[in-house]
Computed example of a mutant assay.
Amino acid sequence: MRRVSPISDRMTAEEIENRIVEWARRRPDVSALVQIGSRVQPGGQVDAWSDLDFQLFSTNPARYRDAGWLAAIAPCWSTHLERTERGVDKLSVVFAGGCEVDLVLMPSRLMKLVYWAMARPAWRGLYPATLRRAIANTRVVVRPGHRVMLGGAAWEKRLAAAANPWPEEAFSAADFEFHVRGFWRHSVWVQKKIARGELRAAARWNHVELMDHLLALLAEEARLAGRPARPEARKAEQWLDARRLRQTDIATCLDAKALARALLAEIELCEEVSCSVAQSGGFAQTDHSAVAAWLRAELDKILARP
């Protein structure tokens, strides 16, 4: 039996965790509560600043979009609901005392289907694309480590499927073209923002778009070289080689020349990594030398300003 402390305005992460579990036990619509994230990953780097991450499986997850119910667990400083890029609702909470908790709201029936299909990789070719994508997204967050806090043997068995070998979604020629073309298209946009003096917009889109495309290409380069890359730059410090680590150590600030130098470094990196991925992956490579030359000339003008 977990010991549940009285509600206070300064609760530890362990106390918050206990209260979430006990709250979930009392909810008839909650079929399972699964902890994910660094706290349950082998070798996870956990310290006093580490947050708590849970998947909350419910027959009616929409009811938890309204954050009012969290007061039954502990006093809250802040809540934020977002739709993640994996297509699920995530309720992020900062409880009094600074403890952060992410609660991913999952529909029980749909996730039972996802785990059922995940346990049968031999049938993968029969699954619709949406189901394969749901399996891939689930494996990204569950496979590195998880703990079933509520749900019993049935959910333990379901989540065990995450350990099964599963063919990774291949990086296709279309993916390659999307990221390469996206990089060059947004490089022009960023250069123009720098030239106009719209430095905040340039800095934002440099990180939002350019690095996103570059990191996708870098992850594929690492996979082709036999290194276990992860999406969204997760643990990138572990799978980027020494050279790529140096090349991605790019400083930006709200200064036109600093942003121009950053974009020049990213252009060089894109040329290198796209060529590497094309050669190793057997992808056809579109010639972007004309736009690269134009960008370099325009960025040199910015660097030559007094």
Rank of each mutant, 00 (worst) to 15 (best):
D175G: 05
D175P: 02
F176Q: 01
F176V: 00
E177P: 00
E177V: 06
E177S: 09
F178C: 08
H179Y: 14
H179A: 05
H179F: 12
V180Y: 00
F183W: 01
F183P: 08
R185A: 11
R185D: 10
H186I: 06
H186M: 09
S187N: 02
V188L: 08
V188Y: 09
W189K: 09
W189P: 00
V190A: 00
Q191H: 07
K192M: 12
K192N: 14
K192F: 14
K193R: 13
K193P: 00
K193D: 11
A195C: 09
A195R: 12
A195I: 05
A195T: 11
A195E: 15
L199Y: 07
L199D: 07
R200L: 13
A201N: 12
A202G: 05
A202K: 07
A203R: 13
R204M: 14
R204W: 15
W205K: 04
W205F: 14
W205Y: 15
N206P: 02
N206Q: 14
N206Y: 15
H207I: 03
H207A: 10
V208P: 04
V208E: 12
V208Q: 08
E209G: 02
E209P: 02
E209M: 12
E209T: 11
L210D: 03
L210H: 04
M211Q: 12
D212R: 10
H213K: 06
H213P: 02
L214T: 06
L214A: 15
L214G: 12
L215M: 15
L215P: 03
L215V: 11
L215R: 13
A216F: 01
A216C: 10
L217T: 03
L217V: 04
L218I: 00
A219F: 00
E220N: 04
E220V: 02
E221P: 06
R223A: 11
L224C: 03
L224S: 04
G226N: 03
G226C: 01
P228Y: 06
P228W: 04
A229Q: 04
P231A: 05
E232V: 10
E232C: 07
A233S: 15
A233D: 13
A233H: 13
A233F: 10
R234L: 12
K235C: 14
K235N: 15
A236D: 02
A236N: 02
E237S: 14
E237K: 03
W239T: 06
W239R: 06
W239A: 08
W239D: 07
W239Y: 07
W239P: 06
L240K: 03
A242D: 13
R243V: 13
R243E: 15
R243I: 06
L245P: 08
R246A: 15
R246N: 09
Q247D: 14
Q247Y: 10
Q247I: 03
Q247H: 11
T248K: 04
D249A: 15
D249G: 11
I250S: 05
A251I: 08
T252H: 09
C253W: 07
L254G: 06
L254P: 01
